[in-house]
Design a protein around this nucleic acid. Structure first.
Lengths: 133, 133
DNA sequence: GCAGTGTTTCGACAACCATCAATATAGACA
DNA sequence: TGTCTATATTGATGGTTGTCGAAACACTGC
């Protein structure tokens, strides 16, 4: 088992195609992907990531969605608990920002080895196809 | 709206951090991420991607999971309908393989712009932060 | 055509999830 | 302390999903 979860939040991880995922790691990854598996949450993440400074407060997010305030809060919590978002209270407002290493980790896992996405140095040491062998 | 879905299955797409996702595109992406949001499906995808030749038949997959055969088939269908897998019947057996461009697309969307994952030429033209501006 | 094997579809059920209204908490400011 | 605003939590509800057994479908080989 070469280098699966590594230090836990390292950006570069074995792509899916290197080796079959272990159950443990698949569980962790699935938790993150599941959080991304909702259009509202994807848009939230994108909104936050694309906001200037890489962060924004809930009051900047809410107006973009036709959803109740509790629902907004719920989705933010899901993203937070998946490790994709981080938040910090500053006075009355709570500011959210993305956790770049988490996104990077997922991106690396999905990279399809040589030539497709990761045709460069961003290719992790191991990929989807490597873990099993 | 610069270049969101592009030609539909182009590997490189605006990262989430370039610009807020449009609802349409978020829906498409979420469908794919949702398919990845299950440990069993992630392991299946990994198993197929890492299998020699980049494909394998259902009979190669089933033994790795402690699930009924209909359930295996169900998960494969979900991955197929999300556009992540492709299948082909050859005689009695059905062979599955990953759709590299789909994985590449998701990987690109999650790339976090300069320096984190995509510190190289694999950086798409646009990212998560670019779409909104 | 018939029997056998590999795979998918169907129908059912329990568990989970997105959503809301109501309520609670946290901080700002009198 | 009390009120106001911003955000989170709770509880309920309808819809979705993972799972299975049973049945159907698709080939192969006889």
């Amino acid at each position: 088992m070469p280098n699966q979860p590594q230090s836990g939040d390292e950006p570069c991880c074995p792509p899916l195609s290197r080796e079959p995922l272990t159950s443990d790691w698949a569980g962790d990854l699935a938790r993150m992907f599941k959080a991304l598996g909702d259009p509202v949450r994807l848009r939230m993440l994108s909104l936050i990531a694309s906001h200037e400074g890489g962060e924004c407060c809930v009051c900047d997010i809410s107006p973009s969605f036709d959803l109740s305030q509790p629902t907004i809060s719920h989705h933010l919590k899901v993203l937070r608990e998946a490790g994709l978002l981080d938040c910090e209270r500053r006075g009355t407002w709570v500011h959210y920002r993305v956790v770049p290493s988490a996104l990077a980790q997922l991106s690396a896992v999905l990279s399809v080895e040589a030539g497709i996405v990761a045709n460069s140095s961003c290719t992790p040491a191991v990929t989807f196809q490597e873990v099993v062998s």
